[in-house]
Each structure stands twice: as C-alpha cells, then as structure tokens.
Write a protein that binds this DNA or RNA. Structure first.
Lengths: 201, 201
DNA sequence: AGCGAGTCTGAAACTTGTTCTAGATTAGCG
DNA sequence: CGCTAATCTAGAACAAGTTTCAGACTCGCT
C-alpha cells in the first residue's frame, strides 16, 4: 500500500531471468483467455511453476505483473515497427497508421488487451515507475512515427494528448461502448493535431 | 460476472430513495478520505445504516456504486455550469474553461476524484450502461460549452477525443505522473481541435 | 385488519489478492 | 568442500469484494 523505494534492480541470475520470463508467459497466457479477471495470482504461479511467494517477489502485485506484460509486448511492437516503419506522407498519417497497426495487434487478442489496459489505467501511485516506463515506450513509438528528434513543448503535449486518446479509446472499445470504426475515427481526429505547424495562439 | 439485463428501473418508494441517497452520501464521504481503496463495502453499508445485502441490491458492485456517485456529482456540476456558463470568445476557449473548472472542483477533493475516475476506467462490460450514462452527461456538458445543437460526425469525434483526453489526463494526474500544468496544457491542446471549421482532408 | 410478494437485516461463507512463516534449496565465496 | 545469506517452496492466514440464507419487516391490496 505504501510506495516502496526501488533503489536499483539487482542483476538477475540466469535461473531468475528464466523464472521471470516464465511468469510473464504464464500471465500473458492466462490473460489471453478471460482478460483481467482470469489472471489469478495462484494460477499464474502454478502455471509458471513457481511458488506464490516467489511470484510476489518478482511482481509485487497483479497490476505490476500486468504492466510488466504490457511493457514486454510494447517492446516487441517497437522492434517490429522499427523493422517495418509506417510509410505515410506526413507525420499525422504515419502516427495514425502506427496506432491502427497496434490496434489491430490488440484486436487479435482482446482479452490480453483488456488485462493490460485495465491494469494500466487502474494502477495507483505505487506502480508509477512501471507505468511511466510503459508511457515512455509509447511516446518513443509515436515520436518514431513522427520522425521527430527534438520535440518542442507543444509537440510533446500533442503526443501526450494522442496517448491519452489512445488509452481511453482502447478502454471504451474494450468495454463495448465504442465501435472499431469510432476508434479509428478518433485516432485520425486526434492525429489532426499533428500537422498544422502553426504555433498555438 | 455475466452481464445482466436491466429491463426497467422499478419506481422507488420514498424510503428506498432515501436509502439510495444515504448510500451515495456514505460512499462519497468514505471516498473523500483514502480514495478508491477507502471505499469498503462493509463500511459503506455501515455508514449508510443499511445491511450489506441491501447495499448490493442497490449497487451490484463497488464499481457500480462509484460510477453512480460520479453521475451524481456530474449532475451537480452540470446544473452549476448551466447557471454560470463559461464566457469565452470561441468554443475552444469555453470548453477549456469548462474542463478546467471541473478540474479545479476535482482538485478540491482529490481522493473522491481518484475513487470515481479509477472506477470509471476500471469498469468492465457489466457496468457499460452506467458508464455510458456518465459519458453522455460529459458529452452534454462539453456540447453545452460549445453551444452546439446539431453536431456533425466530425464534431462528435472531436468531443469524444476531448473526453478521452480529459479522463486519461485525470488518471495520470491522480497517479502523480503528470503535473497540473501539464493537464492544463493538454486540455488546451486538445481543444485546439475544435476551432478550425475546415473539413478534415 | 389480514395476506402475500417483495425487501431488508444480520451473519456466515466463499473468492481472490496479498502477507507471513518455517523449513528446504541455491549462489557466491573462502 | 563447507559456510552463510539470500532465495524459493508449501501452506496457512488475513483482507476485502461478493454471495447466500433464514428470518423479520413493509408495502400494496382486499
């Protein structure tokens, strides 16, 4: 409940690294069916071949675990995108294409998406560092698509708004309150903030 | 776990209405200290002078309860805003002012805000109707500020993006990952989508 | 007033996230 | 190899959301 200081990650041994991966895999698999609720810590520990206490040593809460899974997935996506960058004429198009590509990836496993995104938005202050890491990754992906090296304050705000929209639109889609077409339109709409290079006011 | 059909709200008797209010008040009060986690169903029932089972008859889950509280608060806000509408030159300014006013109201009780917003974004399909009601209220407030009667598809998408940004920015602020200044800037940024009356593409 | 359906109460039970403990195992090191 | 601290395991225990149940109460109706 109280936020612990995380001084520095001690280097993990090989077996520990393996355990960590095993836990992430088990968690993602369980999330794959049933979403957030289906990720039950006892089952994760069981499927990962690890004691419950150990699971909690690696990930201090269910939300930590799911955020770590999201981080993992985002890293894969980032690599994929680096290999096959979006090919749009302007930045707005490229960002929209990137996000829609990510969206389609999530559509392939909506339950996993549900678990990850719900964890992300439900996370409280105690998970801030981890959530922040995810946020930085997302920002990096968007900035890549924009082909921006040194963003201005305004541009950073635009990127934040895009991320806000992205997360929230995902949520509304996952809870069945917004259609895929609407998500697409929303993403394209928010990307409209990118192009006009004119300063605000 | 399964989504129940909600055929029609049977009309509540006077005492039932009183119980409902009492529960909402107790919930809001508990949320006021400690936020989401401090709202414990046993304590809510206790503070409302009602049995636990009764609490669950009125609000089938903690999330339902908090979303209902949010709806309640939004209604108050809506009335207040109707009485003292924002006085900006253009729609974008009025919307930004409205949202910042709402934001300041939330700042006055960050714990309550935390409880409501976390519940809202954590809500799953089973709470969709209630979350939708909140969403419609928010939309109405924004449309009021824009002084729009018959919004187009594009305008509706802009409003959705504004709401997405609003919710998500709130979350990041509540979890200490974004400053008040950044929230303000983000809101002003997203409101930049409003003015340009030129059609997209 | 009396009846029947629906509602409320109090308390226990169940579920799942989280914590704790005692004993086995492992890793690093002299 | 043998020691010591850290880690891991199995399992119990605890906390809070949710469900269930038997009995008391209330409301609307005749």
């Amino acid at each position: 409940m109280t936020a612990e200081a995380r001084p520095a990650a001690p280097p993990l041994t090989e077996r520990q690294e393996a355990r960590r991966r095993s836990i992430l895999r088990a968690g993602a698999q369980l999330a794959g069916r049933g979403g957030f609720e289906a990720v039950q810590m006892r089952e994760v520990a069981d499927a990962a071949g690890v004691a419950l206490g150990t699971l909690y040593r690696y990930f201090p809460s269910k939300v930590h675990l799911l955020v770590a899974i999201m981080q993992d997935q985002l890293q894969h996506l980032h690599v994929t995108l680096r290999r096959q960058p979006p090919a749009g004429d302007d930045a707005a198009q490229r960002v929209a294409e990137t996000l829609m590509r990510a969206f389609r990836a999530l559509q392939r496993d909506p339950h996993l998406a549900d678990a990850m995104v719900r964890a992300l938005t439900f996370a409280d202050r105690g998970v801030s560092p981890e959530v922040d890491a995810v946020s930085r990754l997302t920002t990096a992906i968007v900035l890549d698509a924009m082909e921006l090296e040194n963003p201005t304050q305004e541009q950073l705000s635009v990127v934040r708004v895009i991320e806000h929209t992205w997360h929230s639109a995902l949520i509304t889609w996952l809870s069945g309150r917004e259609s895929i077409a609407q998500v697409k339109r929303d993403i394209e709409t928010v990307c409209g903030l990118i192009d006009p290079p004119a300063g605000t006011r």
